[in-house]
Amino acid sequence: MRLDLLAALNAERAARRACVLVTELESGAARLVTAEHVAADPRAAALATALAAGRSVMVGEGESRAFLTVHVPPPRLLVAGAVHISQALAPMARMVGYDVTILDPRTAFANAARFPGVPILADWPDVALPAYRLDPFTALVALTHDPKLDDPAIAAALAAGCFYVGALGSRRTHAKRVERLAAQGFGADLIGTIAAPIGLDIGAASPEEIAVAILAQVIAAWRRPSAPGARP
């Protein structure tokens, strides 16, 4: 691979942006196509399909064949709130391949003893999230019931286009949350993408069961065709 292509590819991967390395097999010519430039590429349809599937693939026939090497960032799960549900959710999510991080400034709850091996952002969202860099390949789960922590995290996730945003709480609690987000300028359509009450409706009662319901909903959001890392 040419050094300029390798440098560009490494930059996209470091920034957690999806891209495709296109190699024309007849000529050996290669180019890197970022997600924002897919529509302008001669192989736009094939590139869009490959990115949606998240899989490298051979396209074309005969002399027009090309190999599309797809690079999609691995999914992350940011959990706002070091609560009992989070303690069950974190190891489950890691088991199925999510890079999990806990966000909670309350170090009495957010500590290595309660979350072994899990990175912890022990600060408020407005301080911690700029460096964390939410993106469309990240899911945000808000579990504290505290608007001072949940609301800024949810607002940041909506603004960043996270593929899943879910919040714990009753319908009444969420209605108040909707009012607060609307007052911040978020539109009804975007607010309507928030999964609340959070999790699939499986009758979950214990923290562990609620964690299962949440993780199942996150996985479903990641795998659906419109998701940035969707898989068939």
Rank of each mutant, 00 (worst) to 15 (best):
residue 9 L to H: 15
residue 10 N to P: 02
residue 11 A to L: 11
residue 11 A to I: 03
residue 12 E to M: 15
residue 14 A to T: 15
residue 17 R to E: 04
residue 23 T to E: 12
residue 23 T to G: 03
residue 23 T to A: 04
residue 25 L to Q: 12
residue 27 S to K: 07
residue 31 R to K: 11
residue 34 T to Q: 11
residue 34 T to L: 01
residue 35 A to S: 01
residue 38 V to K: 00
residue 39 A to I: 12
residue 39 A to K: 15
residue 40 A to H: 12
residue 42 P to L: 09
residue 42 P to T: 07
residue 45 A to H: 08
residue 47 L to A: 00
residue 52 A to F: 00
residue 55 R to V: 00
residue 56 S to T: 05
residue 57 V to S: 10
residue 61 E to S: 11
residue 64 S to N: 11
residue 66 A to H: 07
residue 66 A to T: 00
residue 69 T to N: 09
residue 71 H to S: 11
residue 74 P to S: 14
residue 78 L to M: 07
residue 84 H to F: 05
residue 87 Q to H: 07
residue 88 A to Y: 05
residue 89 L to F: 10
residue 93 A to D: 10
residue 94 R to F: 05
residue 97 G to Y: 06
residue 98 Y to Q: 10
residue 102 I to Y: 01
residue 102 I to A: 03
residue 105 P to L: 08
residue 105 P to K: 06
residue 109 F to E: 01
residue 111 N to C: 12
residue 117 G to W: 14
residue 119 P to Y: 02
residue 120 I to K: 12
residue 120 I to E: 13
residue 123 D to C: 05
residue 125 P to D: 14
residue 126 D to V: 15
residue 130 P to N: 06
residue 132 Y to F: 15
residue 134 L to K: 05
residue 135 D to F: 12
residue 137 F to N: 12
residue 146 D to N: 08
residue 147 P to V: 04
residue 151 D to C: 02
residue 151 D to W: 10
residue 152 P to E: 01
residue 154 I to K: 09
residue 155 A to M: 13
residue 155 A to W: 10
residue 155 A to F: 14
residue 161 G to V: 01
residue 167 A to G: 04
residue 172 R to H: 15
residue 173 T to Q: 13
residue 175 A to W: 02
residue 175 A to F: 01
residue 178 V to Q: 13
residue 189 D to M: 11
residue 190 L to H: 04
residue 192 G to K: 02
residue 193 T to L: 07
residue 195 A to C: 04
residue 197 P to E: 08
residue 197 P to R: 09
residue 198 I to H: 11
residue 203 G to K: 04
residue 209 E to S: 07
residue 216 A to V: 01
residue 218 V to L: 13
residue 219 I to V: 15
residue 223 R to M: 13
residue 228 P to A: 00
